[in-house]
Design a protein around this nucleic acid. Structure first.
Lengths: 189, 189
DNA sequence: AGTAGGTTGCACACCAGTGTGCAATGAGAA
DNA sequence: TTCTCATTGCACACTGGTGTGCAACCTACT
């Protein structure tokens, strides 16, 4: 019975990923269902987006706490995190675009916990001089994983290749020296 | 006679900067004019956006060629460029948001020349081992100045402070070592 | 006074998307 | 077979934005 609902959610992620401005009709059609049916499961577009966001938050916090538990050094943890979060970021790339505009506030509030975890990680790295301190932890973490999302977003074909590039780039902007960054990603390639 | 037109353009930059989804009506009101008048100067919303973009391109290419002419090293040129382009990026921050969505294609095509200049600069840096080579020049340049715009965008009050942070961050992700980056921005602070 | 041009204030047509109501259908479970 | 429930196919109301047409207006300049 949840079968249709799940399919709608999956397809919505796809469709919105290609075009964040796609309407309920487009999503319905792509899911092989009528628009009215979508409204049967999600009373409003906002409900759909919110559900999608909740999914993303759940997956990302899971990944993030996992990565946090495993390692000691902040930079290694970051690498671990990006590696695991990459497919997720790619799937939910739509949220990057949707964060601005109508649903921005709703999404932002749901993403709050993730942002905090991320900021904590960066802060930890800054405190131990693993990460640079030219920006406050909150902003730096936003930019760093914003870049990861941006690369995941720009990538519409070559998935596995650019995860490495995304990791390196984010490490660099966190202030990790290039040599160290290369060593870190080389470790687990 | 162009007075009204110019005011509309200036105000549009403001209004759209705050809310990229603002309508012609909002812009008109903010400019102290009636919606109909705006359509008198710009037959369509696209015309308005295009004009705005053309302005931005003109200013940015001017700044970029200036910076290119002045220095020899790619990283120093980059610093020079960011310093000069910062106020411009802040003014035209709306284009970052508008680049996705309806007018994306139009904006992107107009921005082409700027992208090329930027990519050339990064390429030059990569060829001389000043910049990292983990990403192709085209993409790296996009990300680096994307970050600058992102910081300019997130900044809604403290203007002069974060230009420095933006420069450092972009240098880092270009692969410039932190010590060198700090020296470069220290030079001209 | 007369004229030209930018501006105004409507009204209008139009479009795309959202969300709702309701009866009909169809397939699977009791 | 009968009951149930998701799905369907319309029709509908509503919203918010775009772009146009046109007469009136006001101001500056001649």
């Amino acid at each position: 019975m949840n079968e249709t609902r799940d399919r709608i959610l999956d397809v919505a992620l796809d469709v919105l990923g290609d075009n964040p401005d796609a309407g309920m009709g487009d999503i319905a059609t792509a899911a092989g269902v009528v628009r009215r049916t979508v409204y049967g499961h999600f009373p409003s577009r906002l409900d759909l987006v919110r559900t999608l966001t909740e999914r993303a938050v759940a997956e990302m916090t899971a990944v993030l706490t996992e990565a946090n538990a495993a390692h000691a050094d902040a930079d290694a943890t970051w690498v671990e995190f990006i590696a695991r979060v990459w497919p997720v970021a790619h799937r939910y790339r739509v949220l990057l675009a949707l964060r601005r505009g109508e649903y921005g506030e709703a999404i932002h509030s749901l993403l709050g916990p993730v942002d905090e975890l991320l900021a904590d990680l960066v802060k930890r790295g800054q405190d131990r001089d693993v990460f640079a301190q030219h920006l406050p932890a909150g902003m730096l973490s936003q930019l760093a994983y914003g870049v990861v999302f941006a690369i995941a977003d720009s990538d519409r074909s070559t998935v596995p290749l650019d995860a490495r590039a995304a990791t390196i780039t984010s490490l660099l902007m966190l202030g990790v020296p290039e040599s160290r960054a290369l060593a870190l990603v080389g470790d687990q390639a």
